[in-house]
Computed example of a mutant assay.
Amino acid sequence: MDGHDELARRFEERRGQLRAVAHRMLGSFDEAEDAVQEAWLRLSRTGDDGIDNLGGWLTTVVSRICLDMLRSRASRPEAPYGQELPVSEAGGTNPPEEAAVLGDSVSLALLVVLDRLGPAERVAFVLHDLFGLPFDRIAQVVDRSQPAAKKLASRARLKVRGTPAVPGAELDRHRRVVEAFLAAARGGDLGGLLDVLAPDVVRRADPAVLPAGVAPELRGARAVAEGTVALRERSRFAAVALVDGDVGLVVAPRGRLLLALTVSVEGERITAYDVIADPARLGRLDLGVLGLPEVSPPSRTP
């Protein structure tokens, strides 16, 4: 095996970890793969002479590439939120990594909230809170002092976790009810929906999200349950999240916010929910992640 083949082998050993870092930063598997491939091209051009810690060097390079991509994205006009599922989401199969994110409510909600952070905030938060890198390394990536890098991560952490508007015990109860609603919606379980909906429940929805001829307001458990089942396909991309201080849902194919649901709970049942699709209304929502793990300890090995 010549030197180039050995370098390629060592890179491939780290590709999965690098892709995970890049995906958390960029929220796109395709863009993450592009960032990792660019890191390989740079390594293959320079070789590993003078690199004492290849994993650390690659993590730094991928992180800087992602930061540049995020800044470039931020400088472009924001594309409007789509109202239809992307073709690749509405049918066909997702790669295993995408399927894992779709099946993990915390991961999906996190991608939505991370998308609202500034580029440097997102990079600092991902590297420290999700991958446990120390702040001296992060400071090099974001080109800030170590205290400034800590402030970036701290500010991002507050935004990611959001601010609950209800007490913890009540929040937990609301979460159980909303999770039961989502499970029934995903399974097309009409009986399960009727169990969790109050008899006089009201569902309101932005007209743009509804098929032609469907009323924007439905009243009564049976009508709302049937209307929820009719939109079952979108529930595949839904995640429980903190929405304006209480438990709600975000619908986000590939982590891109499509819809949000604000949910009112009384006792053990949902009394109302609103489906928000208008981009201006979505942009004004205060979103946070429920069930986010505590900060990881600093990693000794990148």
Score class of each variant (00 low, 15 high):
R10A: 15
R14V: 11
L18T: 02
A22Q: 03
A22E: 10
A22Y: 10
H23N: 02
H23G: 03
R24Y: 13
M25F: 02
G27N: 05
D30S: 13
A32N: 03
E33G: 08
E38R: 08
W40E: 15
L41V: 14
R42P: 07
L43H: 04
R45H: 11
G47T: 07
D49E: 03
D49K: 08
T59S: 09
T59C: 13
T60M: 10
V62W: 01
S63V: 10
M69F: 12
R73N: 06
A74E: 14
S75R: 15
P77K: 12
E78G: 07
E78L: 05
P80V: 05
P80I: 07
Y81T: 15
G82Q: 12
E84C: 05
P86Q: 07
P86Y: 10
P86E: 07
E89W: 04
G92F: 11
N94M: 07
P95T: 14
E97R: 00
E97Q: 05
E97D: 12
L102C: 06
G103P: 02
D104L: 13
S105C: 00
V106Y: 03
L111K: 13
V112P: 04
V112H: 01
V113N: 09
R116M: 15
P119S: 03
V123H: 02
L130F: 06
R137I: 14
I138V: 15
A139D: 00
Q140K: 02
V141N: 11
V141E: 08
Q146R: 15
A148F: 09
A148L: 13
K151S: 09
K151Y: 04
S154P: 06
A156H: 04
R157Y: 11
K159W: 08
V160H: 02
R161Q: 12
T163L: 04
P164C: 09
P164M: 10
G168A: 14
A169V: 10
A169H: 11
E170H: 03
L171G: 00
L171Q: 00
R173V: 09
H174D: 15
R175C: 05
V178N: 01
E179N: 07
F181A: 08
L182Y: 03
A184W: 01
G187I: 08
L190E: 13
L194G: 08
A198T: 00
D200S: 08
R204H: 11
R204F: 14
A208E: 15
G213Q: 10
A215W: 12
L218V: 11
A221R: 08
A221I: 06
A221K: 00
A225P: 04
A225C: 06
E226P: 01
E226D: 07
V229G: 05
E233I: 07
S235F: 09
A239W: 00
A241T: 00
A241I: 05
A241L: 11
L242F: 14
D244G: 04
G245A: 06
D246I: 05
V247S: 01
L249F: 03
V250G: 13
A252L: 09
R254N: 01
R256M: 01
L257A: 00
A260T: 00
T262C: 12
V263Y: 02
G267R: 09
R269K: 12
I270A: 06
T271D: 10
D274M: 06
V275H: 07
D286P: 00
L287F: 03
G291D: 06
G291K: 07
P293N: 12
S296W: 08
S296C: 12
P297D: 03
P297S: 11
S299I: 09
R300E: 15
T301W: 12
